[in-house]
Amino acid sequence: MTADKWLERVAVGVWAFFFLVAALAPWLVPYDPAYVDMQHVLEFPDAMYWLGTDSLGRDVLSRLIMGARVSIGFAFVAACCTMTAGLFIGTVGGWFGGRLDAAVQMIINVFQGIPGFSLMIALAGILEPGFTSMLLAVVLTSWTGFARVVRGEVLRIRSEHFIEGLRALGAGNAFILQHYVWRSLLPVISTLFTIRLGAVILSVSGLSYIGIGLQPPLADWGLMVNEGQTYFRTYPLLLYAPGSCIFLLCMAFHILGESLKRRFVSAGRVYK
């Protein structure tokens, strides 16, 4: 058990570190991450540029720090939107049941019938690339995961006796959903949210890497991998630095999500 605790603490540490960096990015960056300096192109790390410069003479460290802000910020916004959509649709299906539920399930099945990443590529390709279309692509492809789990949980909670007890006391749908159902969903939602954060970072960096995600003036880690791959044989840091940032952050989210899950399972919550 101690090994798990230790791992969990490291994960929280990594997460907190990246979060702080992202929050304080504008004050932390040593140089303007977008400043092109042709005098200092492709430099190895030294006292001036701690992680060297890229092919346009931009400071790699500054870009990494700004990249954290972009990645984490976007992941939070996207995961929140996904959660809201999934929570709403899943609750509607699970709580009201009947034909409405059948319709919800069908829509979920349709969206799951198309691989998420393919739909993301298509949406990002058809809409003008940028923040909003990226957000739309991510939310449209990942709300089903939330909705499915929420629907199942709501279905389970709905059949609990205390719900009938509340109805007998005179409570209406809104009251029960707000004070009891969503409250009971909190552990499941927080677990899914954590895992989703990691997944969003991963898929957005993938899209940015192939050039249809967040667009160049932004310092995204996926973009940095893309720009660095040409020179990485001589300047490996250009590739390893952003890549390991993505990896570490996603790993931290994953470990946190798994330990949250384990905690709620051992607390006796039915959880899939």
Binding site: H161, F162, G165, A168
Partner: peptide, 18 residues
Amino acid sequence: RQRNQIVFQNPQATLYPD
């Protein structure tokens, strides 16, 4: 509802555990 109430069979399940 205030004037007409019910007492259920299984009190453990009827009360919200949290």
